[in-house]
Design a protein around this nucleic acid. Structure first.
Lengths: 250, 250
DNA sequence: AGAATAGTGTCTATTAGACACTATTCT
DNA sequence: AGAATAGTGTCTAATAGACACTATTCT
């Protein structure tokens, strides 16, 4: 910050007002499909359109705290349940005309949540719901939220490669098959069951055995599966890479 | 954004003022060491401390444009030279007390630049310079910029793994040895020359031959090296991974 | 001449992925 | 019984990395 800016900073109103909001791309997996928490707007602009949960950052909270608060408000969650949701900063969106009312810079966040009850308890009058990410109503998304969502989904796909965060989509105890379903759903492609199984167990700290097994086998047959919980690794080494995507390279 | 927030947004002054700045972690390589563009502050707060180049985002520019403008002001660069510098958003920093004057959310950016002339031509009265990233005066950094710089350097290290952006630290034509020096400098460890050479040439689209060679061999002997320029790949596949870092995993 | 470097050859260990197969549990 | 699934075995191709070596160019 140079001197001119420093002097100006004594009177922030010398600069046009900018508002800062925190928005959340909250992802979960329902019925084998990636879902996203959206709010249906009741008022213009973009009345009737779907928007990401979010709002102005408050004076006393930092950015991720604001995002967690918004997430709590819209999901009705608190305490332990809320803190098991993975939350990270995604990026900021600040094109001058992204909001027709005024200059708003949105700091978007990305959340991975296990399948949650539908009711958005502490929410307001607007309709809230988990919508499948594929088959989102492209033109029905408010502001630049389609782009934010795209960035969030791509970040999620990438994060599953080199972090153990896929477990955050699941209950504290899970089977390898459930974990594989997370990868298949987020990446949008089937994975080889046997190779996936061996790979997951070979990565140090990815999962650890609980010693227990499921009560029943699969609905259509098959043995009971062993149960695991998340291990202590923060990074997967070696990583679980997506099948090569030629188009992504050039 | 819910209704309450929507209504509030009609009068942004109903919320305490927040200012948005864009800051730049601009990295380059000089004399075999990673250097960073810093500005010495002339006025409080943090007078005499070093700070990242940056300033308020202007009403008519988006975030990355603001960052590019700040970079241009401090480096004195423009046109082609400026646009060869890689610039991406790094992340936003908005702890309520990160600036003692008022609530400021900083959208930090990360730049990779070739070695540039020292003069910060279009700059202001404050002193500007490229400082080595190791041996930065920890307590002499203003605001939370030490953390921003750490995040930027870590992002740079990671980006070199799976993108061809190391070439952005070099002139348009470079040798494989120069490219290896970039990796060694940013990662802070020596790499095996022979294996690196073969690996780089084996990644599709990373580099392409110019057909030419250097005029002279190395200063202390050795054959002339072939010259390459950046290829058309946007991602490296397979990636050039850093030697395993046990401590990073857990 | 002697040293340093560019670039290639070769071998081994690790990993990814294809495929096969057994054991278990479902309807 | 028949089908589906959990988990393991085995083989091959790709890759990382260690090491050796040649050819070239410097002082």
């Amino acid at each position: 910050m140079n001197e001119q800016e420093f002097l100006a900073s004594y009177d922030p109103r010398a600069y046009p007002a900018v508002a800062v909001t925190v928005d959340v791309v909250a992802l979960t997996i329902r019925e084998g499909a990636l879902h996203l928490l959206l709010i249906r707007r009741g008022e213009p602009p973009f009345a009737g359109h779907w928007a990401l949960p979010g709002g102005f950052v408050r004076p006393d909270e930092d950015l991720i705290t604001g995002a967690r608060r918004e997430l709590a408000e819209e999901t009705g969650l608190g305490g332990e349940r809320l803190h098991r949701i993975h939350l990270e900063q995604l990026g900021s969106y600040g094109d001058p005309d992204r909001d027709p009312r005024m200059r708003i810079v949105s700091v978007a966040h990305l959340a991975f949540a296990p399948d949650l009850p539908d009711a958005a308890a502490g929410s307001d009058a607007d309709e809230a719901g988990w919508l499948p990410v594929t088959a989102l109503p492209g033109r029905q998304l408010a502001f630049d939220h389609a782009r934010v969502i795209d960035d969030g989904v791509e970040r999620a796909r990438s994060k599953l490669e080199y972090t153990p965060l896929a477990t955050r989509f699941l209950a504290p105890e899970f089977t390898i098959t459930e974990l594989r379903a997370v990868y298949e759903t987020v990446w949008g492609q089937p994975l080889h069951a046997g190779n996936f199984h061996r790979k997951v167990l070979s990565v140090p700290g990815f999962v650890e055995s609980t010693g227990a097994s499921t009560e029943r086998g699969g609905a259509r047959g098959g043995p009971r599966a062993k149960l695991y919980r998340a291990g202590d690794a923060r990074l997967l080494h070696p990583a679980l890479l997506r099948p090569a995507r030629e188009e992504a390279v050039r």
